[in-house]
Design a protein around this nucleic acid. Structure first.
Lengths: 408, 408
DNA sequence: AGCATTTACTTCAGTGCTCGAAAAAAGGAA
DNA sequence: TTCCTTTTTTCGAGCACTGAAGTAAATGCT
């Protein structure tokens, strides 16, 4: 719903423009900012001065390039102390908690290995509160200026994005996470799905992808997928459940309890099951050690037929999933990440064959597929960008308060 | 990409707000408009006066409700002559061409039956130009103020939405349509996919659906699907190819030439083929007379086992397609339209069974399914709304010209 | 008929924002 | 020192919005 615009709206918009330009292109002088945003120099004096007075931005040392002629430009940067945010990666076997400053720098970080029983004993919300509290104790000054928390999760979000209705992480479904953290630290908390973050992060990591709609899939102990398009900035929609898209009706038993999900063929446990000829209706292993999965890949690479076949089945499941996805979303590029990225060459043939069977690919061509082995970095970068964008957005709207706060 | 805001931007935004309120809630007094948009009465005097001076809006007769006390309110309406638009429905067997005025009223309409060979002889673009020209000859005054053309199509749009890369309508693939019409009449032309229009139209036709994300499927000589969410207004993304989502790898031969598409099971020709035990690799009938399809439905309703089975296969294909769709889009409501809507009860069991097999539906519940037999009305309404919204958008931006044009 | 009342709309003064042009600032070069 | 160049700031004008006060147009009451 569009809303009525007035002078304050204009200021908010243009402050946002300035912050956004700074976020995307790094420190700049006022004059550069003016041309980057399209605002006049006069407006930049006003807006820049206001943002600096509010402690959101700060002036750097005058930068004098060798042999410069006129008055030296003075760079404007984010004031790193203007705000801090916590970024929590909640995974099956670890919780990583990072404290970042407003300039995007890492201030502190904790990482804890997590067992399957943990959340049976401690409510996930309480546990994450404790993790953030630990950061707070070590960084009292910074944490007093905490302005947001982002949590990456796997599974199906509830309607309010407060917690998960279902998750591959044991015992987290049904627990309040966002509200719990939010009341504990009195800051906005967002839950973000790994798949979408992966896609956004890949866009940031590969500049050549930054203007394409893209899909990122994660293959490992689960199968996840996210979409990211250049325009719509934050927020995405509710995310996807690609791993639990049906591949074969009444097919292999999945960890989610349904039959025939892509994940039941393409996640580590699915491949393991198929490689050793275990009937696909047998309940999947509760977890597969990373080393065991790597060993499977190694076996396939050295020619073990039954293991190769298992990866072919995995590729086929992924390929038909992508082919079906293409009829609805049509990404122009696909990124494959996670432990399974190491097995991509084993699956590539089946994936591409399945894609070729789709009308969309026949017409538009099959989208190129890039392999990015590590998944943690794009996820973190995606969250970092989202969190900072949200802070920028908040600061953009603080214009009218400026006049008030400068009084006191 | 956000752009710099100034006073002109504010005016455009607020003009848009006024036009949008009028479009959605019908004629209103200035005072009502002020409360509906959130603008002040003073602003409405200014904006309303400007819009009236530009001939975009007009004042109606003072409306005096029985027993009213004060000064009577004067209603503000669209000036129906402010602009005209052509709406073209391009179907397999007919072309309907409607001329509508800015108030949304129908000014004239032609409808022509079309044969399969037509576009082999006449380029589709030329043919449509002739159709619009015919309207122009009959309505010279109106057509001199033509401001836009919208065309509903089926198939895969090319990147520029100028024509179709593939279509179930013979001989239209590859032809320039939008550019051809645009240069002939010097107005903007948009090609819109039937599926998306169906979803948008259904939202307009059923007020109770207006705030839900929904999916509309068309079942008939083809299978189509469109998504529509409450927020993002015009433009949608590139549309979907649901009918050609794979249902069974290497399955039944589809008209598109691929194997195993949903359409190959659920469109009329797929059901016909299955009902009569024709092998599913046999090339599909090039067209199925509507009466023959109705007869099939009748046979199934009277208990013919093999026909019932064919509809079950169709339902299963649609159901698994929807189940797969749910993992990516998650509509809260599904609308079924087209000739196949008459057969919905024959397919319902299989559709719902397939949906129940999906994780998303197990968790969020299966979305309710509404049957809307007619498909023409929602398609037309969807296009009408889109065209008028585009005109509104254009008029909203004419603010600065107002001062100029009032001079001459 | 005349005046009060009610509701719709307009006018006016005030404020905030952007912009272009001119002025000031801050160094290097001559 | 004085000139030149480039960056910033200052200043006046123009626009749009708002709240408050004023005007318009009709009904109802005396």
């Amino acid at each position: 719903m569009r809303t009525v615009a007035g002078a304050d709206f204009v200021r908010r918009q243009n402050r946002g423009l300035v912050l956004s330009a700074l976020r995307r292109h790094g420190p700049m002088s006022r004059t550069q900012l003016a041309t980057a945003t399209g605002l006049s120099n006069a407006s930049l004096t006003a807006i820049g001065g206001e943002l600096i007075a509010q402690g959101i931005l700060q002036e750097g040392a005058p930068r004098t390039p060798p042999g410069a002629r006129g008055r030296p430009a003075v760079e404007v940067t984010f004031n790193r102390e203007a705000a801090y945010a916590a970024i929590i990666e909640l995974d099956v076997n670890r919780v990583r908690c990072s404290l970042v400053n407003y300039a995007g720098g890492l201030a502190d970080r904790t990482e804890v290995a997590v067992t399957a029983e943990l959340f049976a004993e401690t409510a996930p919300g309480d546990y994450l509160v404790a993790r953030v509290r630990q950061l707070a104790d070590r960084n009292p000054g910074e944490m007093s200026n905490l302005r947001g928390i982002a949590v990456s999760v796997q599974g199906v979000l509830d309607r309010k994005a407060d917690g998960l209705l279902w998750s591959p992480i044991p015992h987290v479904a049904g627990a309040s996470i966002a509200a719990r953290l939010s009341e504990a630290f009195d800051v906005p908390v967002t839950l973000q799905k790994r798949g979408g973050l992966l896609a956004e992060g890949a866009r940031l990591l590969y500049p050549e992808l930054s203007n394409l709609p893209l899909a990122a899939i994660f293959v490992g102990s689960t199968v996840g997928m996210g979409l990211s398009a250049p325009d719509r900035s934050i927020g995405q929609e509710s995310g996807t459940e690609f791993g639990h898209m049906n591949h074969v009706p009444s097919g292999a038993l999945c960890r989610c309890g349904q039959k025939g999900c892509i994940e039941a063929y393409a996640a580590d446990y699915g491949v393991l099951r198929a490689a050793y000829g275990v009937p696909d209706q047998v309940a999947p292993a509760s977890s597969v050690p990373p080393a065991a999965y790597q060993e499977l890949i190694h076996l396939a690479q050295t020619g073990r037929r039954n293991v190769i076949h298992a990866f072919h089945l995995a590729g086929r499941a992924l390929g038909f999933g992508l082919s079906r996805l293409m009829t609805v979303a049509a990404p122009a590029h696909i990124v494959v990440t996670g432990p399974g990225a190491n097995a991509f060459e084993l699956m590539r043939g089946e994936i591409e064959a399945a894609l070729r069977e789709s009308l969309v690919c026949r017409i538009h061509g099959t989208p190129p597929i890039t392999v990015h082995h590590d998944e943690r970095e794009p996820i973190f970068q995606g969250m970092l960008r989202n969190v900072l964008d949200a802070l920028d957005d908040g600061f953009a709207g603080t214009a009218s308060e400026a006049r008030l706060s400068s009084v006191r």
